[in-house]
Design a protein around this nucleic acid. Structure first.
Lengths: 195, 195
DNA sequence: CGGCATCCGTCATGATACTG
DNA sequence: CAGTATCATGACGGATGCCG
């Protein structure tokens, strides 16, 4: 790792998170803890040696920590520290800038998780309520408020959106192809508060 | 340049600005246009071949453009396009994150220009007025408002701060070692509006 | 001198194989 | 599942040369 050696916050930040893959790992962890293999399968092109290296460095920098979940899971997961969560503003700002490059997926990987995270920057509304996005193999919970909370997994919710991943993803961008169970007003308020 | 191939704004942004030096070049240009040699001398460690490469890519991406200033200057300068200026939020967010790493300069390069840019994210005050920071070899103009405007050069101002670069830099972080000419109330309001 | 291009050594990254 | 080891490749850093 080569430091810029500049007494400047921007340069110092890039010394810490400027290497390839680092900020994408932060993005992955912003919705909740993930296992080594979760990260590896989500980030095509990131090789196992480089993932190990990045996780080691990020741990040394105090951005993430490795935690062993209580039994019966017992899984080892990586999660953001308080300092790591400070990078949310950076990730969301990058997402806002890069959004204009999102026209057609083409051959790019598509991921409902990334779309869910983008809600945090697209949300400018108000209102209350809790929503669940339920895809066949994973779910997300969204808590309306300021700021909008988006996290892995299901919590008790006012409304549950059910569909295949592509349908749920489309629903987050305007299409209306999912099953809405519960308080439809919460879903409408959410949709109206997105930009 | 290797793309992440992910249909995600964060990844797309990093495809464009994720390479080494690119965001530091954006930072340099956020206060105004600069010549090739300005950039080279400000960024120690950036070599001439790599600067040429980055400027070429950034031009191709529509982040910057090369402009020839009118006579008598006639200098060729690089400046941000509208799309490039959208990166200000990214740079400021990085600066906020990296600020906690700024304790002692140590052997790091110090630059009044970087400190002046940091004012944009540190400013949370209100008020009106125009200030000039005048160092021996360069000046900056600051226009109070929302957002705070910081730019290269001098414009007519309510108050002029004069000093050596290290003194002016210290003044922006709390010390009071500079000469204040003009409306001291503007200077005080500015200082009180910084975090 | 400003504005690059070329050459070369080094280091970061990518691909694959292998291990506790 | 969670990594380590090894090797090939490409990006980067440093010096130097070219050209108006």
């Amino acid at each position: 790792m080569r430091s810029y050696k500049q007494f400047c916050g921007v340069a110092k930040a890039l010394d810490v998170v400027g290497e390839r893959w680092t900020l994408l790992l932060v993005r992955e962890l912003l919705l909740g803890p993930r296992r080594y293999s979760d990260l590896l399968s989500a980030l095509k092109g990131l090789t196992t040696n480089l993932l190990a290296d990045r996780l080691r460095r990020m741990t040394a920098e105090g951005l993430i920590e490795r935690v062993t979940l209580p039994a019966p899971s017992g899984a080892r997961v990586y999660q953001l520290t308080a300092r790591g969560r400070e990078l949310e503003a950076v990730v969301l700002a990058l997402g806002a800038f890069g959004a204009s490059y999102l026209t057609e997926p083409g051959g790019d990987a598509v991921n409902l998780r990334w779309a869910a995270l983008s809600l945090k920057r697209r949300w400018n509304g108000t209102g209350e309520g809790t929503m669940v996005l339920r895809a066949p193999t994973r779910s997300f919970t969204i808590v309306l408020g300021a700021p909008l909370l988006v996290m892995d997994g299901e919590l008790p919710a006012d409304v549950v959106l059910t569909g295949e991943e592509p349908e749920l993803l489309a629903a987050l961008f305007g299409a209306d192809s999912v099953t809405v169970d519960g308080d439809a007003a919460v879903w409408k308020a959410f949709r109206d508060g997105l930009r």
